[in-house]
C-alpha cells in the first residue's frame, strides 16, 4: 500500500522560464486536464511537497533557491524538469545569464519534453514521478527494515 503514489503533492518553481511551461503547468490543474484526478495538490510549502516541478533553466541567482526548495522537501522526493530549457537550456543555452539545465543543480528524475511542454506530457511526467516516488519509498522501507533487523541482532548478541 503506497499512499504517496495515490496522493503526491506538487510544488512548482519557475527558474528562468519564458512562462510558456508555467502556464501549461497551471493548465494541468484546471478542469480540462485536471491533475487532481491523480490526487495531486499544488502546495506552496516545500516541507509538504513530494514532487518538485521545475520549469526553465537555472542561473546563478535562482540556483540557490532551487537547491533550497529541494533540500527542504522530505524524503522520498522526485524532481520533474519540464521543457527544453530545464533539460539543456533550450534556445537560451548560449545566453550569458543561463548556466544550463536543472540537472546541473539538483538530481532530476523525470524529463518532460517540449517547448512549451504540452499538458499531456506534463501529466505523463507527474504520473511517472509518482511511480518513482513509490519505488523510492519501497527502497527506503527496505533499508529501514534492514537497519532495524541489524540493530535487533546486535541487541541479541549483547
Amino acid at each position: 500500500m503506497s499512499s504517496i503514489e495515490r496522493s503526491p503533492w506538487l510544488i512548482h518553481y519557475d527558474a528562468s522560464s519564458c512562462n510558456g511551461c508555467d502556464i501549461e503547468v497551471l493548465a494541468c490543474l484546471t478542469p480540462v486536464y485536471d491533475a487532481e484526478r491523480f490526487g495531486c495538490i499544488v502546495t506552496g510549502d516545500p516541507k509538504q511537497a513530494d514532487i518538485f516541478l521545475v520549469t526553465g533553466s537555472v542561473n546563478h541567482l535562482n540556483a540557490p533557491i532551487v537547491k533550497n526548495i529541494y533540500d527542504q522537501m522530505p524524503e522520498p522526493k522526485a524532481v520533474v524538469a519540464i521543457g527544453a530549457c530545464a533539460y539543456s537550456g533550450g534556445v537560451f543555452a548560449e545566453c550569458y545569464n543561463v548556466s544550463g539545465g536543472v540537472a546541473s543543480t539538483i538530481p532530476v528524475d523525470v524529463y518532460v519534453p517540449g517547448c512549451a511542454a504540452k499538458p499531456e506530457s506534463i501529466l505523463d511526467g507527474v504520473v511517472r514521478a509518482a511511480q518513482i516516488l513509490k519505488e523510492k519509498e519501497k527502497a527506503m522501507r527496505a533499508t529501514r527494515k534492514a537497519e532495524r533487523k541489524g540493530r535487533k541482532a546486535e541487541g541479541a548478541q549483547r
Binding site: L61, N62, E94, N97
Partner: peptide
C-alpha cells in the same frame, strides 16, 4: 527584478 533574466537580447549577435 532579475530572477529570470536570461540575456536573450545579446543572442541576436550569434
Amino acid at each position: 527584478i532579475g530572477y529570470i533574466h536570461r540575456g536573450l537580447e545579446l543572442l541576436v549577435e550569434k
